[in-house]
Write a protein that binds this DNA or RNA. Structure first.
Lengths: 176, 176
DNA sequence: TGGAGGCTCATACTTTCGGGTGATTTTGCT
DNA sequence: AGCAAAATCACCCGAAAGTATGAGCCTCCA
């Protein structure tokens, strides 16, 4: 099962639907703000000019001040207008593969035991936890036949019980 | 076998190793540029002032010009100075589990089954192929006790036979 | 302190398993 | 064709496994 998360957090500059006039103001918000700021600055400067003695290099000072302030305004504006940073997204995908994929049959041990085809079949079904009766049904043979197979199987594998046989078979990589 | 993908793409702002003096210039590049721009602007304005008739609202015009230009400069500066956008980082961790080599006990499944200590002990011995009598001898309890344990075990695991219990336990990584 | 759950054990019963023996049919190989 | 091994099936018996029920003892926890 694969879970793919795609939480792509993109800030769309969603523009609400206002009335026509208000929408216009919203649209030109920055321009208006800018104009107001400029007017305020000029007013301030005029006011200062009236208050104090105009020294020789007053213009350069004003120019510098304006430059400074509007540079700051520019920086602030661009920071505001810039799209927010994209967030970091970490997706951890864990895939558990079963042992069955890389099962290597131990041919040598299997050959050593000298098991017949049918016996191996029985062994596999036995290992999956089926009873003799269930195995018989699965293989379309009688219960007695399965018993015979298991008996010979145990004899060849030199074990006494099906659980031992399964344990041994799994340990020797004879069955998956 | 474990495959770990780590496509970690991070943009390091690698700074080349220059000579000391040049390094200083590089470091204060923006400041220097800013200063030069300001000086140039003032020079330009003085030059314009000398050339043309100073009209009544000349100052306001100059101020506006300066404000405009330096706002633009501010925006440009902030765009330049802003850190590059963080890239999306996706880590895909694929874990291949193999039973035989590195056994990792599946605590979650084990907890789900709600088996008692003794029941787990019995399950382990059962998986190694021992009969109930042998388990009883190993654990120094009576055969009947082992039978009780196995019964409850099968009930909790929702299986009918010891072979099924062992198969399930091995599949769920509850026992090695 | 009282109940819940775990561990122990017992008895009685049913089902499944495993061993033993024997027999018939099929299959593969020389 | 004939032999050996494999596969099939049957019957019996005892052992082991599993079910059901009840009960005593202990520990932990609300």
């Amino acid at each position: 099962m694969q879970k793919l998360f795609h939480p792509f957090f993109i800030n769309f500059n969603l523009r609400r639907k206002y009335t026509c006039k208000f929408k216009f103001i919203m649209k030109n918000k920055n321009t208006i703000l800018y104009g107001i700021s400029l007017a305020a600055m000029l007013f301030l400067l005029k006011w200062i000019e009236l208050r104090f003695i105009i020294i020789n290099h007053a213009f350069e000072i004003y120019a510098g001040l304006i430059a400074l302030i509007f540079t700051a305004l520019g920086i602030w504006l661009s920071l505001k207008l810039t799209k927010p940073k994209v967030k970091i997204l970490i997706v951890e995908k864990e895939i558990y593969l079963e042992k069955s994929t890389d099962f290597i049959l131990n041919q040598k041990e299997l050959h050593k035991l000298n098991l017949s085809k049918r016996e191996i079949e029985v062994l596999e079904l036995m290992a999956s936890g089926l009873s003799n009766k269930e195995i018989a049904l699965q293989l379309f043979v009688s219960l007695n036949t399965v018993k015979t197979h298991t008996s010979k199987l145990f004899e060849k594998m030199e074990v006494k019980r099906r659980t031992q046989a399964v344990e041994m078979a799994k340990r020797l990589n004879i069955i998956r």
